[in-house]
């Protein structure tokens, strides 16, 4: 039986007069890999950033396992360890090595011992194929390598959901593949993933559901086949004709 892990209800977000998200409702089941596509300015990233409250929604509700994360008493920092985020710009801590990037947050936030944290970090760094670069500083890594470390850092917190905010958009074309491969491997482990992406190949082949956003609303959603191959919505058709 599928278990609902995240639920967005009538989510809205405005920056001043500008309504970026109008009325978003979305239910995410455990183990789903959802690709969120749409043109720039459609609100994809804002929606994702609202889910871990880097942006505070101006309306609606977000439920994590039935609990409203917008409640005053809600423990936001504990929630953020369960819902990890991978950024377009990587955001590795520049004052730490790749290894420390994965070790320190576990010690600081989850209060794990250094030994335990190192073991976990080493395991995930190996999974993303970055063991050789463990002692490199972020400035010494390429974009694709940084992003793989960023993914390992997020995984080290043992999250239940990972939000990917255009993880390959800042990469040189030849580095996109290595990051997508890591994400593909992750998807097969049953991790719940929300991926804002422009990679139609990933959306089509890896995700279990595709959400098309347009002007702050979900214009169309469904399996990759229905949305990407047989779109019903006029806007979806237009968008796909431009990117495919």
């Amino acid at each position: 039986m599928a278990e609902t892990i995240l639920e967005l209800k009538h989510l809205a977000k405005s920056f001043g007069e500008n309504k970026v998200l109008k009325d978003i409702s979305l239910t995410v089941e455990k183990g789903e890999v959802i690709s969120i596509i749409g043109s720039s300015g459609s609100g994809k990233s804002t929606m994702l950033r609202c889910v871990n409250l880097l942006e505070r929604p101006t309306g609606g509700e977000i439920l994590f396992k039935g609990e409203n994360i917008l409640e005053k008493k809600f423990n936001l920092n504990a929630y953020r360890t369960k819902v990890g985020m991978v950024f377009q710009s990587f955001n590795l801590y520049n004052n730490m090595t790749a290894f420390e990037n994965c070790v320190k947050p576990q010690m600081i936030v989850l209060k794990r011992s250094r030994k335990e944290a190192e073991e976990i970090a080493r395991n995930f760094i190996e999974k993303v194929g970055m063991s050789a670069y463990i002692n490199a500083k972020p400035s010494q890594l390429s974009g694709g390598q940084k992003q793989r470390i960023a993914i390992a850092r997020t995984l080290s917190m043992n999250p239940e959901v990972i939000l990917f905010d255009e993880p390959t958009s800042a990469l040189d074309p030849e580095m996109v593949g290595e990051v997508l491969q890591v994400m593909k491997d992750l998807a097969s482990t049953g991790l719940t993933m929300l991926v804002v992406t422009h990679e139609m190949g990933f959306a089509k082949n890896v995700s279990s559901r595709v959400v098309f956003m347009d002007e702050g609303v979900i214009a169309e959603e469904g399996t990759p086949e229905t949305v990407l191959v047989n779109p019903q919505n006029q806007r979806t058709k237009e968008f796909l004709s431009k990117v495919l």
Partner: peptide, 8 residues
């Protein structure tokens, strides 16, 4: 953001 998003 990188620090907040991880729960710090």
């Amino acid at each position: 953001e990188g620090a907040h998003a991880i729960g710090m």
